[in-house]
């Protein structure tokens, strides 16, 4: 048992959770009042959209691609959600489905023409942003009431006779992690999808269609991007074309923090969600430390480097 706990394999998978726990403890130490239902809810409220965007990015990274357009894409779906979906639900839903289809099309294009995904998605990020500005030139719009209701949902259940009220973001993040874990890590087709990142040639030699796999992964990324956009306006109740620009880098950092790798199909949905949580909490922590917002991005980068250095250390120990 002790050997297992000290094995690099276990330490690597435990690292995302441990970093989150350390960060939480640091927050509670500097600001004990954060240790409440209200405090956690407030600190973690943006976890849900960021976690969804991180999962979207993770699907792309699984097949050795990178999506530099997820931020503007989430912004676009937020704009659609706050305008078309509110005024004309049928048209709004169709527009969101078209967004997902466009993502699947990108996957097909990247596979078919053997294009670098970085270039394609970088180009597309301007397209998404342009469409978003066309739909909603100035910040505004209204989020549909049902989305706000979902995001404001209060979960309660009975445990050993006590009423347990977990903060909604934590509850939602757990649901996201479990659903994606079952789909990608445990299901039989999920194995094929991950295998496509590990050794695409072996997958096509076993008779699977790489085109179909790429389209599936990009469509899933599109779906989670849409969900991220909708959950975001559920919190802000209005939208802006630039509302999620920072999500591109957040999502990449979240996947990597959570133990994922850029190539080779090594990803972890639970880790990615924890990574997204760590990033959001890092923001709050820096505010509690009264670090000026100018320095915050840099300080978040510092936290990222620290965690990655620990991982490198574990890998180095394993290699010895």
């Amino acid at each position: 048992m002790k050997n297992y706990l000290l094995s690099p394999k276990f330490m690597r998978s435990a690292l995302p959770g441990v970093s989150l726990a350390i960060l939480l403890m640091a927050i509670f130490y500097t600001q004990p009042r954060a240790m409440s239902y209200f405090g956690l809810n407030l600190m973690l409220q943006y976890t849900v959209p960021i976690a969804l965007a991180t999962i979207a990015q993770m699907f792309i990274l699984t097949v050795n691609d990178l999506d530099l357009s997820i931020g503007p894409f989430v912004g676009l779906t937020a704009c659609i959600g706050a305008t078309l979906l509110q005024t004309d639900p049928v048209f709004g839903v169709m527009a969101l489905l078209a967004c997902i289809a466009a993502y699947a099309g990108l996957g097909a294009l990247i596979h078919w023409r053997n294009l670098p995904s970085i270039v394609v998605t970088l180009g597309m990020s301007f397209v998404w942003l342009g469409i978003a500005v066309l739909i909603l030139p100035t910040p505004g719009g209204t989020a549909p009431a049902w989305i706000k209701a979902i995001m404001g949902f209060k979960v309660t259940f009975q445990l050993f006779g006590y009423n347990v009220v977990p903060p909604f973001p934590v509850f939602a993040a757990a649901i996201i992690a479990i659903v994606v874990h079952l789909g990608l890590m445990r299901s039989s087709y999920g194995v094929v999808l991950r295998g496509a990142g590990g050794n695409p040639r072996a997958i096509s030699r076993a008779g699977w269609s790489m085109l179909k796999i790429k389209m599936t992964m990009f469509a899933l990324a599109g779906l989670f991007g849409v969900l991220a956009g909708l959950s975001l306006i559920g919190l802000t109740s209005a939208a802006d074309a630039h509302i999620a620009d920072r999500y591109t880098l957040y999502s990449i950092a979240g996947v990597i923090l959570g133990g994922g790798e850029f190539v080779g199909g090594r990803v972890s949905p639970a880790g990615a969600v924890i990574g997204a949580m760590t990033l959001t909490l890092a923001g709050s922590f820096l505010i509690f430390l009264r670090i000026s917002p100018d320095w915050q991005v840099g300080a978040q980068g510092g936290i990222l480097i620290l965690v990655l250095a620990l991982r490198a250390l574990i890998n180095w120990r394993e290699a010895r």
């Binding site: 039989s188 087709y189 194995v191 094929v192 991950r194 295998g195 990142g197 590990g198 050794n199 040639r201 072996a202 997958i203 030699r205 076993a206 008779g207 699977w208 080779g264 199909g265 090594r266």
Partner: peptide, 21 residues
């Protein structure tokens, strides 16, 4: 070799057999 290095031995067997689901 045509195995996927990121998958387990059992998962690699699954890759080979479409009806193993």
């Amino acid at each position: 070799l045509s195995l996927c290095p990121n998958l387990t031995v059992a998962e690699n067997a699954r890759i080979f057999h479409p009806n193993l689901k």
